[in-house]
Write a protein that binds this DNA or RNA. Structure first.
Lengths: 154, 154
DNA sequence: TCGCTGTTGTTGATGTGTCAGCAAAGCTAG
DNA sequence: CTAGCTTTGCTGACACATCAACAACAGCGA
């Protein structure tokens, strides 16, 4: 509660375009993933760090930290993906509470087949329309906003 | 498919910060709405145009156009909101396929109570950290990207 | 050793978003 | 008029996100 109480014309216009762009982009990119690879953006988010990890294994805790998810969301997602054979869990020797998440061969095959098309779609929808300066500016602003929204209250 | 096949360091950094920022912002703002007003962002999105419409009435079709939703999403949402008494539907005299969506008194009371807090949260999380130039730059870029993502294929 | 506290992952309930498919009504060319 | 074709909204099934509550375990101090 720092200023007036409403958004002015410029702020409102930016806000609406941002909200709408986010929706259209996620719709477009999720649709592309679903059609071309039969996977969701959540599947993709989980498989990327797993495929890049040594031996394709990560503690649940470490996986969560890399993609900034909460426990519950990841747990549900892991269960669904395990049922489809994309990964499997094993007890963790160090800490009996934790579990190790392994990517399977079919999980690795899936993400490797999906990645190029997904990146291409991101290029088509976003980076083809941004200059280097745009990318630098957006990075600056996004990281500034991230720094001031530390998963806090309200 | 215009360039290499992967994102370079700058693009990847921007992409990750964007995705994460979107998630943190929507989480923060949805949580604020839920806690302070007991409503979802979807409720808010529907109630805003309704409360601003003459007599608090819109054809379903017009409501859809204003918030850029598809039929199914709006239909489900309207049904849930009608059950909670936030709005009600009536047959449309002009076109028997269509229906008129009316905001109720309690729907109007809810949105009017919720709006100031929601705008304040948007300020706290976003606009307090943006200069006028930032807002102008972001608007330019977002609208450019929107123009080149016309709800199309892939 | 015991008990307290924080952490880890899980579960069930609920609200939400998407998809495919549907029925009814409008529209238009013949 | 009528035979397509489109538009409008609805529904059921499913995947996903969030929340509250839980059980098991780790760490630590008394």
């Amino acid at each position: 509660m720092t200023e007036p109480e409403w958004l002015d014309e410029h702020e409102g216009r930016m806000w609406r375009s941002w909200v709408r762009l986010n929706h259209e982009l996620t719709t477009a990119l999720n649709g592309q993933l679903a059609r071309e690879s039969g996977m969701s953006d959540a599947d993709y988010a989980v498989l990327v760090p797993l495929s890049e990890a040594p031996d394709g294994v990560l503690r649940s805790r470490e996986l969560r930290a890399q993609i900034f998810w909460d426990r519950s969301r990841l747990s549900h997602q892991i269960r669904r993906m395990e049922q489809r054979g994309l990964l499997h869990r094993e007890p963790c020797p160090d800490d009996a509470r934790s579990s190790m998440v392994h990517i399977t061969a079919s999980g690795r095959a899936l993400i490797e087949a999906a990645a190029p098309g997904h990146v291409a779609a991101a290029r088509r929808h976003v980076f083809d329309h941004l200059s280097d300066d745009d990318v630098a500016t957006l990075t600056l602003i996004f990281e500034r906003l991230l720094a001031s929204t530390p998963t806090d209250a309200d």
